[in-house]
């Protein structure tokens, strides 16, 4: 596995911007409990204070500090997005690897129908459907993302595994009589996961927007928890009088998505240049 120290210096301009943006947002997210004297879910004074000192981003309709809330939300949203990508990535890559190497056409055909059926639905619609079944909140959100999104990773991993199946080094594992588990874990999956990671990075953008979107719609993270989507939703009725309640979390969400997209683009360019 390539270590970060070997990858980072080779990144190009856009990826550097991506890393810089994400580093600032994550750093503020981690440091906000130390930097800010305010509690993200308690009133800090008057309502609708315009941005200035000491309330950098102003206060909301309940008098809570928007700066504190925005970066408390950064912690939650980014953590949820990482988990929301990681679970389906691991499950899907494994499933795809198994399906790509199985010699049972009935089993793989049946799973393929399920995978295509899941992928055929609009992403948010089916996630909302699953949330409705398993219940809202952080846990329901993660379960719904895993239940839906694994199918995309499975599709990618299966396609890659099918290619690998005809490579001589996989034939060599058959000639050497390795077990199927050994071939899968040591030869197929290590050559499949890099594609899953590449997709995972672009998927991260979709997932973080989905988390905010679902919370905006009221089926994700519950109030009074600080979460970007929920904050945007909270501020919407007051958009004319107090734009800062909506704009700052929205801007931070957009910047995070842009940062990840730049990083993904940079990594893609780098791997294209190398191969």
């Amino acid at each position: 596995m390539k270590s970060m120290t070997r990858v980072l210096p080779k990144l190009n301009g856009e990826a550097h911007w991506g890393v810089a943006i994400l580093a600032i947002i994550i750093l503020l997210g981690v440091l906000v409990p130390l930097l800010s004297p305010f509690n993200p879910i308690r009133s800090a004074g008057d309502t609708f204070i315009t941005p200035g000192m000491p309330h950098l981003f102003g206060t909301d309709q309940l008098g809570r500090d928007v700066f504190t809330r925005t970066f408390a939300a950064a912690q939650l949203d980014i953590t949820l997005a990482v988990l929301g990508v990681a679970f389906p990535l691991v499950i899907g890559t494994f499933m795809g690897g198994v399906l790509g190497t199985t010699r049972n056409p009935v089993v793989s055909g049946a799973w393929l129908i399920i995978i295509d059926a899941i992928n055929a639905f609009p992403f948010l619609a089916i996630v909302i459907g699953v949330v409705a079944m398993v219940g809202s909140g952080v846990q329901g959100l993660l379960i719904a993302l895993a239940a839906v999104n694994w199918a995309r990773y499975a599709k990618i991993a299966r396609a890659r595994a099918l290619q690998l199946r005809d490579a001589d080094f996989i034939h060599a594992t058959q000639v050497l009589g390795y077990s199927r588990v050994q071939v899968l874990t040591r030869h197929i999956l290590p050559n499949v996961y890099s594609e899953s990671l590449a997709y995972g990075l672009s998927d991260f953008v979709i997932v973080i927007i989905a988390i905010a979107g679902l919370s905006f719609l009221g089926v994700g993270v519950r109030p009074p928890e600080a979460e970007w989507g929920a904050m945007i939703s909270d501020g919407r009725p007051f958009l004319r009088q107090a734009w800062w309640i909506t704009v700052f979390p929205g801007l931070t969400l957009s910047l995070t998505a842009i940062g990840v997209a730049l990083l993904a683009q940079g990594l893609t360019n780098r791997s294209r240049g190398e191969d």
Binding site: A167, D168, F169, H171, A172, V175, L176, G177, R186, N191
Partner: peptide, 23 residues
């Protein structure tokens, strides 16, 4: 049969695809 596999081994034509790139 797996128990007999070791007796017959093979070297493949294309040296660029006969080794696992991650090993």
């Amino acid at each position: 049969p797996r128990s007999e596999r070791w007796k017959v081994q093979m070297v493949f034509q294309d040296p660029y695809s006969s080794l696992n790139p991650r090993q």
